[in-house]
Design a protein around this nucleic acid. Structure first.
Lengths: 361, 361
DNA sequence: CTGAAAGCGCTTACAG
DNA sequence: CTGAAAGCGCTTACAG
């Protein structure tokens, strides 16, 4: 029902309509620039759109007038003519506020100075109107493109829909789900290996893994990377020590309780994200265990919670903001910037106080 | 430099231009509806804008056609004619991700079904181009209105600018800074009193207060409310026990260290927000104090961190999302909805495990 | 109560 | 290399 409504009456009970001219002279339009430069508006348009078919001298003259007047084309008018707006949508269902904010900041980084703006669109993939809502959002706003973080990025129905309605999109995921031009691939697998390497170097043998929900690809990748490193050392993950969480604090506590009740209990636990690792910390406390003396805990993400708990968590930092920046740059096709920071998206292990040598007992 | 750039070349290296028609028939326009209903487009426009000057029969006929075709007016075209877009801007500098996300969700709640969309705009008030950036953002996008959470809401320069360029705005703050139609006022003062009441009921006498930064009005209001309650009991806040933090975890630790080094040391500490309260928890641990046995700690906000630390924090929950919803509704003038939930914005004390009776020592 | 004309600020064909 | 005409999908005067 919400998709058919429109902002009615929005302008009926009018404020004083001084808006347009108040605070100085009217903003210049393409017509003003054309007149001032002594050319047609079409030629100004060519300059705006960087057409090569303008004589250098003409271009310079126009650019001078544009600069002098601080002219900037109206994105609304331009969009109407282009049949496409200058808005980028972020469609997401990730429940972690820090992830969401970091991603938004990254997208904004990549859009800075481009004239595009970011429209946010949280959603619920389980809603019966989910796909229709996405379609309405994209079509109504004539979005220039959308960025899809996990787990929306992993929904093939969304990608298919976007292709059908001809909307540009970038999927952020831990595996190559689509053609390269539609993907930014994170290094969850590598991060998992880094966590395992750290735990192995500490000498641990009884190592447990708490996975995220199976519906997130990152759950599998983080585990995969973790197992890769074990394999390198000729070890394998004991299935009894593998347990499924849900990327939430509460699930971390529950999984921690289960793991710590086992005999022999693991000496190290790698949780698929910091929230769950913080939950395990609670379990350890309840079980009367000292961390890291009796138990090593390693998280993933390095969100704020990792530093707020006690002891602060050893974890793997993921460059969410950087990934967002790359996604935006890829979407708006700023090749110049895409070139820089080629390797800025690799995770890095952050060693704090929740990990230590294997208990000598 | 970023304010003069425009999305150039955006459409030059063209994707196959099938977008507009693919996936079914072309979207209906006002002309289609007019033709189908046998009226002029102006009359359709009247229906869209809920003008009273349409005969009922005509209106019904048009509405039927609109419904049949799932027609929705193009916000871009409408905006161009209106000289104003259907975009709401959120301009903010609050560093707390949970606050930002909750506020965004609240604004979206209030906008749902209205046809408006939310454009996010984090900013830095200390930047030399801050005001120019805000102006460019608002004017370029012809924003319908903006919502300003603290501390941007407390910047008179911003309000003045917005007034000058004729942009609607809502300021969210803990005191009435502006005309009522521009304000949503939170109840930080009441929340402060609730925290104090709880601490007093527990029997504490040596009570400390860690304030937020003085540049935030909420710092003063939370303290004011706190003192109000003390006064009710014939007590006053000992100036030695008042210390200034910065709303950050680190500042909480620093202030906690200072407070716990005093003799006699306070038996209860009220921190201006949860981050700082979590920091105090760290100090207490370092000082070898048990919470709440040796020390009561109360926070403010009830963000996730309050539950992730040990022991979980007693705190005052602020209805950020609700406040956001009200701000959006006020901005787009949805009186029907403004009416509901009149008292939904009051803070509520959440008692957890970080507060207890005064030590019997 | 209803409509024909002009316009919002741009761009797309189409000419030259 | 440059421009006059028409159009994007709406609304605002202005008539009737």
């Amino acid at each position: 029902m919400n998709s058919s409504k429109t902002p009615a009456n929005a302008f009926e009970d009018g404020e004083p309509e001084a808006a347009a001219t108040e605070g100085g002279r009217r903003r210049a339009t393409i017509n003003d620039i054309a007149r001032l430069a002594g050319v047609s508006k079409k030629t100004v348009s060519r300059v705006i759109n960087q057409s090569p078919f303008v004589r250098d001298e003409t271009r310079e003259r126009i650019e001078a007038v544009i600069a002098e007047w601080g002219y900037a084309p109206d994105p609304q008018a331009r969009g109407l003519a282009f049949r496409r707006s200058f808005l980028i949508g972020m469609i997401y269902d990730n429940p972690n506020p820090q992830y969401v904010v970091n991603m938004q900041l990254g997208l904004l980084d990549g859009m800075r100075g481009s004239g595009f703006e970011l429209v946010v669109h949280p959603c619920d993939r389980a809603s019966p109107t989910f796909l229709a809502d996405v379609r309405t959002f994209v079509e109504r706003q004539k979005l220039y493109g959308v960025v899809l973080p996990p787990s929306v990025s992993e929904d093939e129905r969304v990608a298919k829909l976007l292709r059908e309605i001809g909307c540009n999109y970038i999927r952020i995921a831990s595996v190559e789900l689509d053609k390269p031009e539609h993907m930014i691939v994170g290094h969850d697998r590598m991060g998992g290996s880094q966590a395992a390497r750290h735990i192995l170097d500490l000498g641990h043998k009884r190592i447990a893994f708490i996975s995220g929900p199976p519906s997130f690809r990152s759950s599998h990748e983080r585990r995969g990377g973790f197992e890769d490193a074990l394999t390198e050392d000729g070890m394998t993950l004991d299935p009894r020590y593998v347990i499924q969480g849900a990327y939430t604090f509460e699930s971390g506590t529950a999984c921690g309780d289960a793991l710590l009740a086992m005999t022999p209990r693991p000496t190290a636990i790698f949780a698929g994200n910091d929230e769950m690792a913080a939950g395990v910390l609670q379990s350890a406390r309840k079980a009367g265990l000292m961390v890291p003396r009796d138990l090593t805990i390693v998280g993933f993400d390095d969100f704020q919670i990792a530093q707020a708990v006690w002891p602060p968590l050893t974890t793997v930092r993921t460059p969410t903001r950087e990934i967002g920046r790359m996604a935006a740059e890829k979407l708006i096709g700023d090749a110049r910037r895409e070139a820089r920071d080629p390797a800025g998206t690799e995770p890095v292990l952050v060693v704090r106080e929740s990990s230590g040598p294997v208990p000598t007992v």
